[in-house]
Design a protein around this nucleic acid. Structure first.
Lengths: 240, 240
DNA sequence: CTTGAACTTTGATCTGGGTCAACGCGGAGG
DNA sequence: CCTCCGCGTTGACCCAGATCAAAGTTCAAG
């Protein structure tokens, strides 16, 4: 009996993978999934590892299995801006371009499922369903990016921080009941990363967090663990 | 002989249309093009017309034939941010969502080729090639949006203005020789629109333009006509 | 337990760009 | 011709957030 395939025909690698259902792999039938899994492997990277450099040649794609990946651009004088955060089970890659215009770095410890560019592209030809999933994700990311443009262009520092916390809460609160008004999560980013994401400085980020804490909108333990008693109250601070 | 179809079988409407080659319609064969053209019509709107309200139900898509369309979000207290400018021959619409999260307004006089949502969706099912074009445009817009995130998050007012002028020059300079270092174009936006696009105020936009003029990086006639003697020098001001 | 390095907070001061106010200019309408 | 009105420019002043400086925390390593 084959070791790499589970009894029901699902590849070992995929059995407990979110992307299998909610991510792009949900578009594949059993046979296609097995084919892709054959060329894939699980990769771990610890926080801070550079996964892909700016202007680097891309020859693999990946799916985020756990953790958070930040995509950033750096100006020639060193100013940096994080342009997107990728959570599980997001697809990581830029079809139709051979070079990355961004750098990708592990914001937390992450695990990825990587596979060769060519393998996905072959599947894309065969499966319009797969391509449609990728298209949908691109559109969702475009919506998010535009949301972020508003935040960066027109919100105050305090509103930016509140918007950021909300976004994180929505993406990684383990108690993922969307009806609950409270949330509780681990910040995946350092203050420096938050600053690079919001177009602020570390000091401003810290001061605004302090203010939210003083106003009892949030509480923070160990610098990373955030408790939000009322998401509605946090939302009121986000200025939409 | 049919009046709506040109002698070679290309619909009248499409004969001189850029989208036919460079836009999404290039993905269609003659028969599909005729089918789509049958449900399409050319629409003109003058500068300032609202084409689509925020949270409005979408039941048509369009292609920009000429002019510039601005996509914007407005916060509840009235602050506005333009999140994208669409030029010919861009596709206008958000597949897979029935409601717009943005408002669309004609920034200049525009002409559009509109067609029912359903017509495009039917074609998309039939033509993976069409879906791929749409996917590519979404990815390109995502790249642009991320470029803009960097501009909004990390650039100074002066750099924002320079970046904006470069972007416009690249999109609408009629003397479209990419090797020439000079450019000459009509600004499609008022100072107020530029401010809403760059996350600045009207006054700051005006002052920065004045400064670029004083430094002989650009010259402006009639408030709208911009001459850039050296794009390289303008680029140096954009701080990438 | 101590040390040290990385991260975070807090305070004092400065400044880029916002705000408020006045003026200039060009085209449409009388 | 003048007068309005919608833009655009310019100046004076102010403030949110940057910068500079100094402590305070946290945590892993010794």
């Amino acid at each position: 009996m084959r070791k790499d395939v589970h009894t029901d025909g699902t590849p070992r690698l995929c059995v407990s993978c979110d992307a299998r259902h909610k991510g792009i792999c949900g578009a594949l039938d059993q046979e296609q999934l097995v084919a892709l899994a054959k060329t894939s492997h699980k990769q771990h990277a610890e926080s801070g590892t550079e996964l892909l450099g700016d202007a680097e040649r891309i020859n693999t794609y990946a799916v985020v299995l756990s953790g958070v990946v930040k995509l950033a651009k750096t100006l020639s004088d060193g100013r940096q801006q994080i342009v997107s955060l990728q959570f599980a089970p997001d697809f990581l890659g830029r079809p139709f371009k051979s070079e990355s215009a961004l750098s990708a770095e592990a914001a937390t410890d992450v695990s990825l499922c990587t596979f060769p560019k060519a393998a996905l592209e072959r599947l894309m030809q065969a499966s319009p369903e797969l391509e449609r999933r990728l298209y949908r994700q691109a559109l969702d990311e475009l919506d998010q990016a535009r949301e972020w443009i508003v935040t960066l262009g027109r919100k105050t520092a305090g509103e930016k921080i509140a918007s950021f916390l909300l976004m994180i809460a929505r993406n990684i609160d383990p108690s993922a009941d969307p009806d609950r008004d409270s949330a509780n999560f681990e910040l995946p980013l350092t203050r420096a990363d938050i600053a690079d994401f919001l177009g602020l400085t570390i000091e401003t980020v810290s001061r605004q967090l302090t203010r939210l804490r003083a106003d009892k909108v949030i509480s923070i333990e160990n610098n990373r663990n955030v408790v939000v008693p009322s998401l509605a109250r946090l939302e009121a601070r986000a200025g939409n």
